[in-house]
Design a protein around this nucleic acid. Structure first.
Length: 677
RNA sequence: GCCGGCGUAGCUCAGUUGGCAGAGCAGCCGCCUUGUAAGCGGCAGGUCGGCGGUUCGAGCCCGCCCGCCGGCUCCA
């Protein structure tokens, strides 16, 4: 038996019945490299359906074939493949667990999921069985067929009616309540819009039918063996609302080729090794204890990193014209009622009682800061007044959301409040935007995404105030340039602002491509009003200042976690908890070792001496595992010449004079040099 | 808070049908005195997360609680 495929130039290629993409490529003289090569195949039935397939994928008579290099740059095709994988998974689940209802199963970054209501809970162990069933569905190579139904027909398929089969062979009476709800919603939405009652498209493969917009692979066999994997089991609310039933979500990942799947799984493993919780334990930086879930304990080395961040932060704030204040952690409840936090935030606050008076632990720093502002009369000559505070706030986060340093119940905001006149607002906002970029770049984050959020439906303040504030933020962002001189890109989020004012949020992208919201600039006309703060103008009248809330790093704790994962623990020297370890080879070098240590410490470096009675290899290894940037080995030769043998980040650099090495490291720290990436 | 999973030494993990709690690493002591990622020997280390139950007997079975992990919702 033979099959024919059409090549891009229109010619026909004759191949054996069981030919694969690789065979076809060979036949036309194209060699397939092991990785990153596959083919674009257009279905014989539907010229709109094109997909990228693994080189081992079987070919079908009538396929249109184009052999291409896969660079993961064909998201449409990969997305389609993942969506088909989700259908195959749902089919496998229904086969293995009859009586299961299935809800929604979209594609996500790197994969897909599907939500189910199982008659009995399933466990991780069941994932293997489902994966096996998926493999057999792939092996059956069921054709995937699209059908377009009227609402009534669709309800007959997914409703609880009499089981059977329609004239076109679709099963009836599947009794899938989630699907029925979705169909009813489509109808309701169409009616609300006054548009036509929609045609409902469904996709069918064998005994499985799903409500779906498509597109899909032409048959289940197009999913390459070993190109998908079920990764985890989780709970998720039906339609994302915690008021609804909790469904069981199965996550999977799928790629066009096996190599890509393998690479993805390896990347996941690498990410696990970069987990800041692991690094925090291995480098003895911080810990968590049952006695205080969500409350981090910082160890001596963790505080070294903390202080390196904070020292830099303080230095920069002095330069940028900020004053630093500190306000109490516990304040009378009455203040929180006045500030509005009681109404908006009390579920997340901690309370206590002192001398029979109700108190609250601060979840934010602004009310305390405002009391400092109010402590005396302020003049227009005092403005702009920039008051920064490393404020430790406590928030009673739900237990299920705690996650290392990323989500904790106390954290230290690098907060600041800027009080200024309306005329000064634009200049102040511009200053903060530039400050923000400077600070991120200093830590090695140059990829920053900016979002501008404007007036929400529920808001306070006059139209004029909002127009002014939004105008200021927009003008500032529109005028800013990137370092390359291009206009600064930003995303507009209409209606996403705080209830008291519009805001600019800053998201930094780490080395793994994840983004983290850190900085925020919020313009606030409301709080000055609520707490009645004023300044005396040149006209001797009382005026209301504008208040800017801003944070750069967001939370020192979380930022520390981001740094640790971004650098995989290999922090720039200026941040490293231990910057250098001196390793004397034998006992007779210990004295010179102590001298080297003294020199390093005299240069304000965080240095240690490892004179344990362990082999040198062992001590080198420990230093590497502790991610110490400089290991300085001293033996007979070095002692003789007053040198040190330098090992910098795992690389031997040879010996150099002690004074020069110390000066070099100290210089790197002083400049806060970043590792070249 | 909700869904699912998991709690054995500081860490990583063994522990059979319920029948005397183990290993490696880390720690401590000693030996070795070392030339760039684990030298050798010894010692010590545990209310098996907690409480209750079933049983002659529970690390193992059951219930409740606590904590952690992966998600959902929420969020710096």
């Amino acid at each position: 038996m033979t099959l024919h495929v059409t090549l891009p130039d229109g010619s026909l290629l004759e191949l054996d019945d069981d030919a694969t993409v690789r065979d076809a490529a060979a036949a036309i003289g194209q060699r397939l490299a092991k990785a990153a090569i596959g083919a674009r195949v257009t279905s014989r039935d539907d010229p709109d359906v094109t997909l990228l397939v693994d080189s081992s994928a079987p070919l079908h008579d009538g396929d249109r074939l184009e052999v291409v290099t896969l660079k993961g740059d064909d998201p449409g095709a990969v997305d389609m493949l993942r969506h088909s994988a989700a259908h195959v998974m749902a089919q496998a689940v229904l086969r293995r667990f009859p009586g299961t209802s299935f809800a929604i199963g979209p594609t996500i970054e790197n994969g897909f999921y599907y939500d189910f209501a199982f008659p009995e809970p399933i466990t991780d162990a069941d994932l293997d069985a489902i994966e096996k069933e998926m493999a057999s569905i792939v092996g059956e190579n069921l054709p995937v067929e699209r059908a377009e139904l009227s609402v009534d027909e669709a309800l007959a398929v997914f409703g609880a009616g009499e089981p059977g089969a329609s004239e076109s062979g679709l099963p009836l009476g599947l009794d899938q309540p989630f699907k029925v709800e979705l169909i009813e919603d489509l109808v309701a939405a169409a009616e609300a819009e006054g548009s036509e009652v929609p045609v409902i498209s469904v996709y069918r493969q064998g005994d499985f039918v799903d409500l779906c917009r498509g597109p899909h692979l032409p048959s289940t066999g197009r999913l390459g063996k070993g190109t998908f994997k079920l990764t985890s089991l989780a709970g998720a609310y039906w339609r994302g609302s915690e008021k609804n039933a909790m469904l069981t979500r199965i996550y999977g990942t799928a790629f066009a080729t096996r190599d890509e799947l393998k690479a993805h799984l390896e990347a996941l493993e690498l990410a696990r090794q970069r987990d800041h919780r692991r690094i925090g334990r291995d480098l003895d930086l911080f810990s968590f204890h049952e006695e205080g879930p969500g409350f981090p304990f910082f160890h001596p080395r963790g505080m070294r990193l903390w202080n390196a961040i904070v020292d830099f932060w303080r230095e920069e704030h002095v330069r940028a014209g900020y004053e630093e204040i500190s306000t109490p952690v516990i304040l009378r409840r009455e203040l929180w009622e006045r500030s509005g936090h009681w109404d908006n935030y009390k579920d997340n606050m901690y309370f206590t009682e002192i001398d029979e008076q109700p108190y609250a632990v601060k979840p934010m720093n602004c009310p305390g800061g405002l009391l400092v502002y109010k402590n005396r009369r302020r003049s227009y000559r005092d403005l702009p007044l920039r008051m920064a505070e490393l404020g430790r706030v406590h928030r009673h986060e739900m237990s299920g959301v705690l996650h290392g340093l990323f989500r904790v119940r106390y954290f230290t905001q690098d907060d600041a409040h800027i009080y200024c006149t309306p005329e000064q607002l634009e200049g102040e906002v511009r200053g903060v935007v530039r400050f923000m970029h400077h600070i991120y770049a200093s830590f090695g984050f140059s990829d920053v995404r900016i979002e501008l959020s404007t007036r929400p439906e529920k808001s306070i303040g006059s139209d004029e105030m909002w127009a002014t504030a939004e105008g200021v933020l927009t003008r500032v962002l529109d005028a800013e340039l990137t370092p390359d001189g291009a206009p600064l890109p930003y995303q507009l989020n209409p209606g996403d602002g705080a209830f008291y004012g519009p805001k600019i949020d800053f998201h930094i992208r780490d080395v793994m491509g994840r983004t983290w919201q850190c900085g925020t600039i919020q313009v606030d006309f409301a709080m000055p009003e609520r707490l009645d703060i004023t300044y005396t103008g040149a006209d001797n009248e009382e005026h209301r200042p504008v208040m800017i809330h801003r944070a750069l790093l967001g939370s020192i704790e979380r930022f520390m976690g981001i740094l640790l994962e971004h650098y995989g623990g290999n922090l720039p020297t200026w941040l490293a908890p231990v910057q250098a370890v001196v390793i004397p080879i034998a006992d007779r070098h210990a004295e010179y070792g102590r001298e080297v240590l003294a020199e390093l410490r005299a240069a304000d470096l965080r240095a240690e001496l490892d004179d344990r009675s362990e082999s040198m290899g062992k001590r080198i290894r420990d230093g590497q595992l502790q991610k110490v940037p400089y290991l300085l080995v001293v033996g007979d030769r070095e002692q003789e010449a007053r040198e040190v043998a330098v090992r910098e980040r795992g690389e031997q650099k040879g010996a150099a004079p002690l004074a020069a090495v110390v000066a070099g490291i100290a210089g790197e720290v002083r400049e806060r040099a970043l590792p070249s990436q």
